[in-house]
Write a protein that binds this DNA or RNA. Sequence first.
DNA 1: GCGCAGGTAATCT
DNA 2: AGATTACCTGCG
Length: 269
Amino acid sequence: MVIRKLENFDLDSIAESGQCFRMNRDKDGTYKIVAYGKVLSARDLGEGEFSFDCEEGEFNEVWKDYFDLEENYKKYIDSIPDTDEFLMKAAEVGGGIRILRQEPFETLISFIISQRKSIPAIKKSVESLCSLCGEPLEGGFYAFPRAEDLIGLSIDELNSCSLGYRSQYVHSAAQMVGGGEIDLERIGEMNDEDLLMELKSIKGVGTKVANCVMLFAYHRIGSFPIDVWIKRVIDEIYEGEFPLERYEGFAGVIQQYMFYYGRNFMKKW
DNA sequence: GCGCAGGTAATCT
DNA sequence: AGATTACCTGCG
């Protein structure tokens, strides 16, 4: 068991930030996170303390980076001008969000699946896919499938995970990655622009999904994915013009505050 | 019963 | 280039 006192860290907001689809809250408030072929229980102990149910070694090797704990997020929050009431509020409410470092393949497939789906529906599809061909883990969980695991699946099998027209996209992406046509590790060495192009060369990956993979897997925190919620915020709060240049190099962090606040606190709009 | 959901690709102007 | 439309499926 690992206990840490952490600033700008909040399990609830991370789980609701839309970055990941395999982080779920139990009735007793414990979060179960499945990633990197491991299951982690994490818990808010209050007073800024958190417990993580794993060995010190695993924590340092996997979860510290996963949750981006080395980074101090205060500097991002402090970059917001006092005059921007909306962002000041959004960062106050969502200040515990971290930009996760998720596995590229899982992130790619998950966000391909995400298009025109609600979050519960995305989670359901992802879980079906994992139990269909992912490696079994402790506690009845399954690892996210590797490309090799997905390659063999027929379109019908993919359809059984309620993927609909996205089955072709997932199938094709699995072939590209598993067949070596696209090397997710190698493209991680590229600059932002080239990485974006590589990702968009995958069927079913457009600008939004590519930016999500950039931000949530490759940790390119300058990426700024624009989905319906961000668009809504920009239209309704910023009259269509958001000053992106002000946050050059870390706009993705700001995007998360905007998304989280827009989606969870402006629902009635 | 039906519109819509964290979009993309194809097909128009 | 920019606008429009079909697309699977489940949920509200």
